[in-house]
């Protein structure tokens, strides 16, 4: 069941992105930024969290999940230590993704030559 919902959720988000890309003058950079803001907005009232419970792994892959985990970590920390937690917990849940992206792209940049 999770496979089907993951397929549909991730596919529909990518399809929406493709429609925006084809019909407007926005670049992929605009679209990913818009999707991140939408993800953060949806998790303001825990909507995206419920969506992950229903959809499964497919909801963690689109870039909307990046915005969701930013705000989710911030709110979790804010519950513990007060308003300063919004600053402290911001990168708690996305730390693995960002640090691995930095590490792998640095290492591969040292090893490989650009292809063009």
């Amino acid at each position: 069941m999770y496979f089907l919902t993951s397929f549909l959720f991730c596919g529909i988000l990518c399809g929406i992105g493709q429609i925006i890309l084809d019909t407007t003058k926005l670049t992929p950079g605009h679209i990913t930024s818009i999707f991140v803001v939408i993800g953060a907005f949806l998790d303001t009232f825990s909507l995206y969290d419920n969506m992950i419970q229903i959809v499964g792994g497919g909801a963690l892959l689109p870039v909307t999940s990046f915005g969701h985990s930013l705000i989710h970590g911030a709110l979790l920390e804010a519950e513990k230590v007060g308003w300063i937690g919004i600053f402290m917990g911001m990168f708690d849940l996305t730390a693995a993704g960002i640090s691995s992206a930095i590490l792998f792209s640095f290492l591969f940049a040292l090893l490989f030559r650009p292809k063009s």
């Binding site: 999770y2 496979f3 993951s6 397929f7 549909l8 959720f9 991730c10 596919g11 529909i12 988000l13 990518c14 399809g15 499964g56 792994g57 497919g58 963690l60 892959l61 689109p62």
Partner: peptide, 9 residues
């Protein structure tokens, strides 16, 4: 996109 999502799951 759907295949990527299903692979993630």
């Amino acid at each position: 996109g759907g295949v990527v999502g299903a692979l993630g799951e």
